[in-house]
């Protein structure tokens, strides 16, 4: 689990930032302000995913940025596929910038 620490830290930070917003009745005209700090829409996944992919599978790379994977800003949200769906699968470059011939199945 140690290997997860750094990115978990980032994740925890983002969660902490979001934590104090719980309110029942909001200041009614503050929608613009709310929208400014609301998270944007999540990107779709540009590589193949196993149908049974869970947080463990995704975070194996996205927690620390292994294999050139972007680091998740909220690794405590572990039902990743709830928001990130299967996107268009493009030919990808690997970490060294070399084009991969075939998209490897990510499990």
């Amino acid at each position: 689990m140690k290997r997860y620490l750094p990115a978990l830290t980032a994740a925890a930070l983002s969660v902490l930032l979001l934590a104090p917003v719980l309110a029942t009745a909001a200041d009614d005209e503050a929608f613009e302000k709310d929208a400014a700090y609301a998270e944007g829409n999540p990107p779709m996944v540009p590589h193949r995913m196993e149908p049974g992919a869970t947080g463990d599978a995704c975070l194996a790379c996205h927690l620390e940025g292994k294999n050139g994977a972007p680091i998740s800003p909220h690794a405590v949200r572990i039902d990743c596929v709830q928001c990130h769906g299967q996107g268009e699968i493009k030919e990808t470059k690997n970490a060294t910038g070399k084009k991969k011939k075939k998209q490897k199945e990510i499990k």
Binding site: L5, P6, A7, T9, P42, H62, P70, P73
Partner: peptide, 13 residues
């Protein structure tokens, strides 16, 4: 640590 990780974050669409 957040500052030190230096990795790129998943960008918002």
């Amino acid at each position: 640590l957040a500052a030190a990780t230096g990795g790129k974050f998943v960008g918002s669409a």
